[in-house]
Amino acid sequence: MGGVSRYRGPRLPRRRPVREASGPAPGVVVPRGVELATAWSWRLLVIGAALLALLFLVQYFSVVTYPLIISLLAAALLGPAVRRLDRLGVPHKLSALLVVVLGLGAIALLLVFVVSQILSGVEDLSTQVVDALDQVRTWLRDGPLGISDADLQSALTSLQESVSSTGGRFVGYATEFGTAVGHVVAGAFIVLFATYFFLADGPLIWTWAVRILPRDSRPRVDSSGWVAWRSLTQFVRATVVVAAVDAVGIVIVALILKVPFVVALGVLVFLGAFIPLVGATVSGFVAVLVALIAQGPIVALLMLGGVILVQQVEAHILQPFVMGRLVSVHPLGVIVAIGLGVLLAGVAGALVAVPFAAALNAVAQHLSSQTGVGEDPRHAAARDPAPPDPA
């Protein structure tokens, strides 16, 4: 008997069994860009934390750190005078002492002269202030605002009540003022003695600071320090020139318009020029205000025109040819530095922000010129030139 054959469909090829990999599975490979970004990120975080700790210490010990910074600026300004006396044969420490004493005497004489001028004209100015207030009161009453005497008296009464309500705080304010005066006096003594020692033993102090660092980094740190000091010296010289020209210009305009307190205004403009962008504007506003009180609105407008003219000369002539040649910092860098300085330390931060930025820029250019792209810093440091002359 023949069996019945059944059709079971086409014959499919037999699948081979899947063999497992003989070795372990390969690990996940991190892309090179992510690895570099991670390495840079944690290093930048550590550097940022160190900078924040340093800023906190500077702010916490501001009674000492701020006078030391001012002493560095003063030493940068007075250093050429000390070296000139050295060349004349005067002993170095005696040269530093003479320069500090003469500088202190010049500042004291200038302050005495300014105070005497203010005291001699304060009586006339007070009378003019009263007359100006009467004119303002008349304008408020008869002018477009139409404020009556009753409204003015009510406003003055409210102001007196608000002042009386805060009278209990004056004791605290007086205590804070006394503490601030004590800090100022202590800071003045620190500035005086630190300036002398920076002038007399500056290279020795810097050599001691460099010797604390690791031996391999000493040549770079030493050369960078002298570059920063030379940049700081050039910045202070340029700032003094700009400030002197601003003060002389304002004094000439004030003399022509017969504005009182000419010398005091000149000193204020000179000191204000050390605060970039803001100081000249504030001191010029004070000069215009004095002209308004003493001579009236017409003279005040003329004084405003003179202030604007002096500032234009500074912005378009002095800054490019004096400051721009000696201190190569872009205006955007100046604005950013001042903003950061104000946020971190207020007015004191604005004073030191630009010289710090100039010194940092000079050090960065110096280090970048000594090391090629991808070069080992240790090999580059072996052929570093000698530190530049601090003069």
Rank of each mutant, 00 (worst) to 15 (best):
L44P: 02
L367Q: 00
A150W: 05
D201V: 15
M1W: 04
P26Y: 03
G182M: 11
A186C: 08
I147N: 01
A180Q: 13
D201Q: 12
A382L: 15
S223M: 08
V267L: 14
V327W: 03
S165G: 08
Q160N: 11
I212N: 06
T157W: 11
G249P: 05
T157V: 12
H379S: 09
L257F: 10
D151G: 14
L97G: 01
P219A: 04
R378P: 07
F193I: 11
A382R: 10
R19L: 13
Y7V: 08
A49F: 10
A76Q: 04
A25R: 14
A108R: 03
R6A: 04
P331K: 13
W226Y: 04
R169S: 14
L85C: 08
D216F: 09
E123Q: 09
V245M: 01
E123D: 12
V185W: 02
G168R: 03
V342F: 10
D201N: 15
G172F: 02
G168C: 05
S223K: 01
V191L: 10
R218C: 05
A228T: 01
G89T: 04
G2W: 07
E161A: 12
P17Y: 12
A50T: 03
V242H: 00
V136N: 06
W226D: 00
Q312S: 05
A359H: 01
T195G: 00
L213V: 13
R141S: 08
P24D: 10
A264G: 15
G372T: 05
P260V: 06
A381K: 00
I338M: 00
G372R: 14
G178T: 07
L257G: 10
Q117R: 08
L213C: 13
Q59F: 11
S223F: 00
S62M: 11
E161W: 11
A155R: 13
Y7E: 00
I147V: 12
G9H: 08
I252V: 10
G172Q: 03
V58W: 06
H330R: 09
V334C: 05
V185Q: 05
S164M: 09
V63N: 09
L85F: 12
L159V: 15
V253L: 03
P276I: 07
T166H: 15
T175L: 12
F235Y: 07
V245C: 00
L97R: 01
V114A: 07
A264H: 02
I107Y: 07
F285S: 13
A353R: 06
V58D: 11
V267F: 15
E176T: 09
D201H: 14
A74Y: 06
P260S: 05
Q234C: 08
D149N: 09
